[in-house]
């Protein structure tokens, strides 16, 4: 969070009815500003998102950073919302599963529905966020990488290979969509033949699925289009940061 952001969205402190310290602040959820008033200072982001703002796709599985059900993206990084004090999230771009549900489930949610829909479904929104972050910087993750990424999520219903299959399906759809989008853009700018060559090359690359630089994330471009607010799409996470990310979440035993 930059200094300027903090200043803009700064929290205002007060005291609640029972002498409880309360705060007013603003969160940026799925690109839209959300005003929170009279919240107890100790509230975590999970509580504020679910109970005050109604983002119930963020699930409360344990409240202690172990289960991953509450995973949201903060500035593009998967974060367990139950471990983040809500006031500390002001000025950061928060993304919840809701934004990927409309108008259609995105490729990740669709793949989860197909491969993991037979489970109870409680862990799926959180796993979906983690998968989106993974696919944003690794277009073709190995089975072991997917397992490691999901090891902070406790699914009690389904074996890991269902999620491996879902991640791979989603990766394929995303690569395909991206190739199409690029091809369209290219075709308008270039000579038809060049475009064709480029498209083929691009499609080839996508299928090879080299890791993508973060700003070319296949997922985030949707967000500003929908919400129209965010200037810098998320996706700060880089492959190399993955391990320290896990340390922070503190869930991986």
């Amino acid at each position: 969070m930059s200094e300027a952001d903090a200043g803009e969205a700064g929290a205002h402190a007060g005291a609640g009815s029972g002498g409880w310290p309360t705060v007013d602040f603003e969160l940026t959820v799925n690109g839209a500003p959300q005003r929170v008033t009279g919240a107890w200072v100790g509230e975590n982001l999970l509580f504020v998102l679910r109970e005050r703002l109604g983002f119930t796709a963020v699930k409360d599985g344990c409240g202690e950073g172990e289960c991953g059900a509450c995973t949201v993206l903060m500035e593009g990084r998967p974060t367990t919302a139950c471990l983040v004090p809500a006031v500390a999230a002001t000025g950061l771009a928060i993304e919840t599963p809701e934004v990927h549900a409309v108008p259609q489930p995105d490729p990740v949610a669709a793949a989860l529905a197909v491969h993991a829909g037979a489970g109870c479904g409680f862990c799926l929104p959180g796993i979906g966020m983690e998968m989106r972050a993974l696919l944003a910087h690794n277009g073709k993750p190995s089975a072991a990488a997917i397992r490691e990424t999901l090891s902070g999520h406790r699914c009690r219903c389904l074996p890991p290979e269902r999620f491996i299959a879902a991640t791979r399906d989603a990766a394929k759809t995303l690569a395909h969509k991206q190739a199409q989008a690029r091809a369209q853009a290219d075709a308008s700018a270039q000579d038809a033949q060049d475009a064709q060559a480029e498209r083929e090359l691009q499609a080839e690359r996508e299928l090879q699925a080299e890791p993508q630089p973060p700003h070319e994330s296949p997922i985030y471009p949707r967000v500003p289009a929908q919400a129209g607010e965010r200037t810098q799409p998320g996706g700060r996470a880089r492959a190399g940061e993955n391990d320290s990310e896990h340390e922070q979440a503190g869930a991986r035993s």
Binding site: P97, A101, P105, G117, A118
Partner: peptide, 13 residues
Amino acid sequence: PAAKATGRYPYAA
């Protein structure tokens, strides 16, 4: 399944 994957399935919580 789609409701579960998008977080709209209505658990008691």
